[in-house]
Design a protein around this nucleic acid. Structure first.
Length: 443
RNA sequence: GGAGAAGUACCCAAGUGGCCGAAGGGGCUCCCCUGCUAAGGGAGUAGACGUGUCAAAAGCGUGCGAGGGUUCAAAUCCCUCCUUCUCCGCCA
């Protein structure tokens, strides 16, 4: 949520800055300006009436005790009551519309961002190099299928299109990635949180997904109670609400959290064809990093998160690049975003494995995440930042493609080996070995 | 899932229609007194949000889990919801 004062003081500038994000909020802002005026006028009226009501109300008991006639005064009070009710009703209407519009406005992009969409994204740096293959490289779907890492058809059988099953060494590899990420973060002072995977509406509102994008998540409701919850689309949605409605002490900042969760997304009208396999599914795994900071510390925190994400990819030995997103490609809640994109040879391009963003005070305002500054004793909004660290489901395809050998086997990145009992290579032989050891495994 | 009970300030807690912007205690802060391991005395302690303002301040409004309602007036009465606790049942 934006600070109404910024809009009030400079509506035209806000319009322009939001336009650089490719959203036209002109009518919304014009309307907000009108509603803001009406709102304050109504507050003035209703509060005046209430003030009178309070004053007179104090005298009534005495008058009654003294046995005086109160009919006239009660008549006035009755009129006041109706007046207040009318003002309040009108105010509620105005405030409802006002709040809805305010919640619908996206965050202001940082001034240094290029305006416009994807086409204006700018790669900041490249890292790593492609292995030169003296053989015809396979794509990750074939590799995962041939090596028995992923079972696509049975995943679809269980849950439909966009779901898959990690099996055997594939599951181990995925698990190793999660362990590697979590261990790295913990060593760097981040606290691991295991959060609910189903969240209430306020979480989506605070993070900025709602009300606008409430159709992009899966809703779960029970027949008996109408309490709706949704499957989280990212752990950020949960983490942004950890300190909702709290006033932290300055000493408690920054808060640095990580959380592993599956992420559930409807991905309506998706990219399909060119994104085979597990590039885009309805459920994928991700370790999320999250920080709550003082306003003056969020720029440094942002750099820290970007570096952390980059180091994870780098230490896996993967070729990747870091991209500074143009204003229009940043999501609604974010003031700035850098993507880490890993190279997928079969696609001849890069795919996002991490997205690091600074929401500044946007989420904090929506969720009342505040802290008390020691020096002034005043309450201020925190800044919130988030970044994937990393989305494993996108890393695994990159690993199998970038680490494939001529014989169809795949080398295990060194960083992961200690999480896989020292395993160095995954080959077809592993399918048999896994199945022999596990009589329950069928097919 | 069934049956009960409860949610009041940092914590405990009193309070069944106006005198409650909320008794009392603990804690915390400040002050005083006293030299035997700490005790006693006094004072302060609702924060927050909204409005107001160039910004602040004063003032005003809202606040006793949340939202509605009744009433001239609600912590107090009514309704809905949420949460917590106890007992029973079920269960990883």
């Amino acid at each position: 949520m934006l600070d109404i004062k910024i809009i009030r003081d400079n509506p035209e500038e806000v319009k322009t800055r939001l336009k650089s994000k490719l959203v036209d909020c002109d009518t919304a802002i014009d309307r907000i300006m009108v509603l803001d005026g009406q709102r304050r006028e109504l507050i003035f009226k209703t509060e005046n009436a209430k003030s009178e009501q309070n004053k007179v109300s104090k005298d009534i008991p005495q008058l009654k005790k003294a046995g005086e006639d109160t009919t006239e005064i009660l008549g006035r009070m009755n009129a006041l009551k109706n007046e207040i009710k009318a003002f309040d009703d009108e105010l509620k209407q105005v405030e409802d519309e006002y709040t809805e519009l305010m919640l619908s406005l996206p965050n202001l992009p940082d001034p240094d961002l290029k305006p416009g969409g994807k086409e204006n994204n700018a790669p900041l740096r490249f890292c790593g190099s492609s292995k030169v293959c003296d053989f015809e490289p396979k794509n990750h779907v074939d590799l995962c299928t041939d090596l028995g890492l992923i079972d696509y058809p049975r995943g679809t059988k269980l849950a439909g299109n966009g779901y898959w099953i990690y099996r055997g060494m594939g599951a181990r590899l995925e698990w190793a990635l999660l362990n590697y990420f979590i261990e790295t973060h913990e060593l760097e002072g981040y606290e691991l949180l295991m959060v609910p995977h189903m969240l209430n509406y306020e979480c989506g509102l605070t993070a900025g997904q709602f009300p606008k994008f409430k159709d992009e998540v899966y809703w779960v409701e029970t027949a008996e109670d109408q309490q709706r919850r949704f499957m989280l689309p990212t752990a950020e949605t949960a983490l942004a609400s950890i300190h909702r409605d709290e006033i932290l002490t300055e000493a408690e900042l920054p808060r640095k959290y990580i959380s592993y969760t599956p992420c559930f997304r409807r991905e309506g009208g998706s990219y399909r064809a060119e994104e085979r396999g597990m590039i885009r599914g309805h459920q994928f795994n991700k370790v999320e990093m999250f920080q709550v900071t003082k306003p003056e510390d969020s720029d440094a925190a942002f750099e820290e998160l970007v570096t952390k994400a980059e180091m994870l990819v780098k230490n896996l030995g993967l070729k990747f690049r870091t991209v500074k997103l143009a204003a229009g490609d940043c999501s609604a809640s974010m003031a700035r975003t850098y993507d880490i994109e890993v190279y997928i040879p079969s696609m001849g391009g890069y795919k996002e494995v991490s997205s690091v963003s600074n929401a500044r005070d946007y989420q904090a305002r929506r969720g009342q995440i505040r802290f008390r500054r020691e020096e002034t004793g005043k309450v201020e909004f925190c800044h919130t930042l988030n970044g994937s660290g990393l989305a494993t489901s996108r890393v695994l395809p990159a690993i199998v493609e970038q680490y494939q050998n001529a014989d169809g086997s795949v080398e295990v990145p060194k960083a992961l080996r200690r999480f896989m009992r020292g395993k160095e290579t995954i080959s077809k032989k592993d399918i048999l070995r896994v199945q022999m050891k596990n009589p329950l495994s069928c097919g």
